[in-house]
Design a protein around this nucleic acid. Structure first.
Lengths: 348, 348
DNA sequence: CCACATAATTGGAACGTTCCAAATATGTCA
DNA sequence: TGACATATTTGGAACGTTCCAATTATGTGG
């Protein structure tokens, strides 16, 4: 019975037509008679036919596989899960399917999954590069005519499209907000210093401090892992310094949550005794207690934009690398203290 | 320059050997002379060769693509992201790569992505089925000899392997714990009643209530969406009933967090004024305030086990469907009130 | 130097699909 | 009816790989 798989030829035989006709049906060609089409479709259902995309791609040089690859560096961070969901939304309505892979920040793993995706003939790639990724790493892909869109982390020097959020503008706005609430000792907490994102956010922080006339003070920036645990660590070190800060803008929301944990462990209530601002606006930010004031980047819409850009390039056949930075906005909630009954007064 | 892609034949020409020899090199055959192998490899690097897996799979009927598919129903839930990470760990060390897709609980989307994965010749599938999935839905897969492992949600009647956590035992233990703290009015909050998981967890709750001599009371179970918002909703309705409950076991951690939010909105402190127990032990459970007492299922290790089972079946060629339920354990933290200085006394 | 084993290489013939040019059926008009 | 347009169908010939059987090079013992 089930000897070998069922091919177009089997279908053709069963439906009493030629394999060419079956192929036409497969592609939904208008050339084929309705009656014939029905017969063929019936035969396919009957025999349990499965399309062999490999064989098809083999023939048509322009290997359009209708799959787009997404590679992220940390799937446990819900920011990236959200991003993938955003990508999926637009990719799906364009009739593509998304294959997602995780690199866990390993450059070797990244090479493996990208190679594997390429072997399977993806028609485009959206990637949030692992830490040590080099600009030349995606060269072969684009040389082969496969559009690549880099998200979240920029890859200076690479000739690929990229979508990053306005990191500098974001932290700058956060500082401005805290300064307007009367804070003068504002720290920058968390993040690994060797990343482009860190540099940008720190630069925005410095801009904001200077613009507010507070100046940039080295001792107020405390780096750490960009995680909740890292945040606990960072606030611990920040609070130990002589002229203790009264507010902090954090590298991201995960760090901000850690900072809140660390504050409470020291009997300080975030939002009342110490102002904290995050970055990303992850989904938990609005329901946390206190609700987190943060820079909203909306990973879903970022994913959508990335997907749109990628699809545009896929359809255009060959597209210029283009580089967009998505706007961010400050979402004021409770953790900065501004939402207190009597807003605007100085805290701590 | 880049006219068409570079094939084994191009490599053969460049290295001065036949395509057959190149093929042997590709497969790491011991038959080929070391010098020749080196020449061929050099030519491949030189010309930027990419292996065409499609063509290869076409020839070898036993389409072993070295990719395994993972399909989840809600990527925004970090439980599933963690699960995928667990799968990736073992899959990776076995030399496979994982392609992950999200269905967002849509049965149609699930059909699409599974079909697409099948067309690309995955060698195995791990799936957390969307809500309306029927037992027969994966029949064709297994008929084609592709191992399938169902996780999280069981699919009664399907002839596939499955790994689910001991839902019934979990909620039963939770109730027992709450009863031992002196609670008598214990509610069951959240979850959609039309799922197998809900039934199992509710059954465990009922078991626990009966075992504690408290009996099962219809009005104490309040269903809702299995999300944070659903939890807020559920606690609102639970607290409105006449003989108000003093504790609750929740459908999952997301619901439990929502319940905490809802309690606080009513000036009740979770862990002090009301005991709450979650289910899943998501990563945020231990760092939340108060830390969540919950049933730990450890999605990562569940993912690892699923992957191990799948790999076993792939290697065995054909394996019997096997059904394992993973043990769960109660993790006592703060939200149940037991961690108070004077533990064991009755609350509220 | 022959017979023979062993090592290394090689030319087709598949695999399941799509494309092309060509063939056949069907309809229309004078 | 013949000539022609239009609708539908159809055999090959690719695509890039692997496998098989067969070939050639290399070594060994007598």
């Amino acid at each position: 019975m089930t000897k070998g798989r069922v091919t177009v030829i089997d279908i053709a035989k069963a439906a009493g037509v030629s394999k060419s006709t079956v192929s036409l049906v497969l592609q939904g060609s208008p050339l084929v008679n309705e009656g014939t089409r029905a017969k063929v479709n019936a035969a396919m259902r009957e025999l349990g036919y499965v399309y062999n995309r490999g064989a098809a791609n083999l023939r048509q040089t322009s290997a359009k596989s209708k799959i787009i690859g997404v590679v992220v560096n940390d799937l446990t961070n819900s920011f990236f899960a959200e991003l993938a969901v955003g990508v999926d939304m637009v990719v799906q309505s364009a009739g593509f399917v998304q294959f997602l892979s995780n690199t866990s920040e390993s450059i070797d793993r990244q090479r493996e999954v990208v190679a594997s995706m390429r072997e399977h003939g993806i028609s485009g790639l959206i990637v949030s590069p692992a830490r040590a990724t080099e600009a030349a790493d995606f060269k072969p892909l684009v040389a082969a005519g496969i559009p690549v869109v880099v998200v979240v982390r920029s890859l200076p020097g690479a000739k690929v499209s990229s979508i990053v959020s306005d990191n500098q503008g974001g932290t700058s706005a956060a500082v401005e907000h805290l300064a307007s609430l009367g804070h003068t000792r504002i720290a920058f907490l968390g993040g690994f210093p060797d990343t482009a994102v860190f540099e940008e956010r720190l630069a925005g922080y410095a801009d904001g401090m200077n613009a507010a006339g507070l100046g940039f003070h080295e001792e107020l920036v405390v780096s750490s892992a960009p995680s909740r645990a890292g945040g606990v660590d960072a606030i611990g070190r920040a609070i130990a310094i002589g002229d203790r800060p009264t507010a902090a803008v954090c590298f991201n929301d995960a760090v901000a949550f850690g900072v809140c944990d660390g504050l409470r462990a020291r009997r300080l209530e975030p939002g009342r005794d110490f102002a904290v601002v995050g970055f990303d606006d992850v989904i938990e930010a609005q329901t946390a207690v206190p609700a987190l004031t943060t820079i909203s980047v909306d990973p879903q819409s970022m994913g959508r934009r990335a997907a749109q850009l990628l699809l545009k390039q896929i359809n255009a056949g060959k597209a210029e690398p283009e580089s967009v930075t998505t706007a961010v906005r400050l979402v004021v909630r409770e953790s900065c203290g501004a939402a207190q009954k009597n807003a605007g007064r100085k805290m701590a």
